[in-house]
Computed example of a mutant assay.
Amino acid sequence: MRWVNYVKGHGTLNDFVVIVDRYAAFPLSDEEVRHLCDRRAGVGGDGVLRAVKAKHIPEWDGDPDLWFMDYRNADGSIAEMCGNGTRVFGRHLADQDLISGREVDIATRAGVRRLTFHSDGSVATDMGVVGIDPEPVRVQLGGLEWSGTRVDVGNPHAVVLLDDGQDLAELDLTVAPTWSPAEAYPHGTNVEFVRRIDDHHLAMRVHERGAGETPSCGTGVVATVATHAAATGLGDGTYQVDVPGGVLTVVLTGDRAVLRGPAEIVAHGKASLPD
């Protein structure tokens, strides 16, 4: 039996198991990731964040001295990016004096992301360019169907802007939404359902690829704001998004976004891995 040291953290209740593996000496199998994320048999989490020096990641061709966020979904699948995860990742590295300074770059499968640590304990992540595809998709859930917007935040999203009369709370996200055409997302997607509160204030629920419904999704919040801003013509500005796990803010400037919110470490421990 293998044992691994970990911390548990969350950003607006989007929770993660964080493991520091500087030299990439402790790779995790899909089964091990699923075990760690199991809320009964393991630690519990929406995913695993493994901190590895970028020089040890074969596909990375950037700065070798950055910390690389090797993110895995709860089902063991690899994800390109995780907005809430970047903040928890950075918080733990800072707490352990593995990074220093108010602004720090980290490496992800979606590229370099800059973290800014604020005096109130929140962390902001420069999420880079947000891409909106002009070709919509159809999203289906529980016998209902909507037009969805395809958004790239380093990972894929389908954003549904609900009509004012539709109740966000009544959606059954224990069931995975589907979409058409299926080939729009050959590797699956995150699906966000959004209700407008006012021009710069939204509410969102999400079904995450590889995790199911989660209390929050940072990249989903960014995708939501970009879609709303484009659809209404509001454009640049600061937007608040309420998710079941709390509140996040997005500053939109052109096609770039900065996501800001809390990042909390709640436990340290040692976990067993299955034989």
Rank of each mutant, 00 (worst) to 15 (best):
Val7Lys: 10
Lys53Trp: 00
Thr86Gly: 07
His201Ser: 09
Val153His: 04
Gly210Met: 10
Gly131Ala: 08
Phe68Tyr: 15
Val104Cys: 14
Ser180Glu: 11
Gly85Glu: 03
Tyr71Ile: 11
Ala223Pro: 10
Leu173Val: 06
Ser29Trp: 06
Asp198Cys: 12
His10Arg: 03
Val241His: 02
Ser100Glu: 15
Val222His: 03
Lys8His: 04
Glu80Lys: 13
Asn73Tyr: 00
Val130Ile: 15
Leu234Phe: 01
Ser216Cys: 15
Met127Phe: 05
Trp3Ala: 12
Met69Asn: 09
Thr189His: 09
Leu49Ser: 02
Thr238Cys: 11
Ile99Phe: 01
Gly142Leu: 02
Leu28Gln: 04
Met81Arg: 03
Phe26Thr: 14
Arg109Tyr: 07
Ala54Trp: 02
Ala54Phe: 06
Phe26Leu: 09
Gly9Tyr: 07
Met69Ala: 14
Ala124Ser: 13
Leu36Lys: 14
Asp152Tyr: 05
Met1Ser: 10
Asp167Gly: 04
His228Lys: 04
Asn14Phe: 12
Ala41Trp: 09
Thr86Ile: 07
Asp199Tyr: 04
Val243Arg: 04
Arg50Ala: 09
Pro136Val: 00
Asp65Ser: 13
His118Arg: 06
His268Tyr: 13
Ser77Pro: 04
Leu171Trp: 05
Gly121Ser: 03
Ser147Ile: 11
Val251Asp: 15
Val225Cys: 09
Thr174Met: 14
His187Pro: 03
Leu28Trp: 02
Tyr239Lys: 01
Glu213Lys: 15
Pro244Ala: 12
Leu66Arg: 00
Arg109Gly: 13
Gly246Ser: 10
Gln140His: 15
His56Ser: 00
Leu13His: 15
Ser77Gly: 10
Gly237Val: 08
Gly237Phe: 03
Phe16Thr: 05
Ile99Cys: 05
Gly121His: 07
Ala158Arg: 09
Gly121Phe: 06
His157Ala: 01
Pro64Glu: 09
Thr219Cys: 06
Gly148Ala: 05
Phe89Pro: 02
Ile132Gln: 01
Tyr239Leu: 06
Val130His: 08
Arg50Asn: 03
Gly44Met: 13
Gln140Met: 05
His200Trp: 07
Gly47Val: 02
Gly210Arg: 06
His201Lys: 02
Asp275Met: 12
Arg87Gly: 10
Gln240Asp: 15
Gly128Ser: 10
Tyr6Gly: 12
Arg209Cys: 12
Val247Gln: 14
Gly45Ser: 02
Ala24Gln: 00
Ala25Arg: 13
Cys37Gly: 14
Arg34Phe: 13
Ala107Tyr: 07
Met127Arg: 11
Glu208Phe: 02
Pro186Cys: 08
Asn5Pro: 06
Thr253Ala: 08
Glu264Val: 13
Ala158Met: 02
Lys55Leu: 11
Asp167Trp: 01
Met204Cys: 10
Trp179Val: 10
Asp38Lys: 11
Gly44Asp: 13
Val139Leu: 05
Ala176Trp: 12
Ala51Val: 05
Val243Cys: 10
Ala158Thr: 08
Thr249Asp: 05
Gly76Asp: 03
Glu31Tyr: 07
Gln140Asp: 15
Leu234His: 15
Pro58Arg: 14
His207Leu: 09
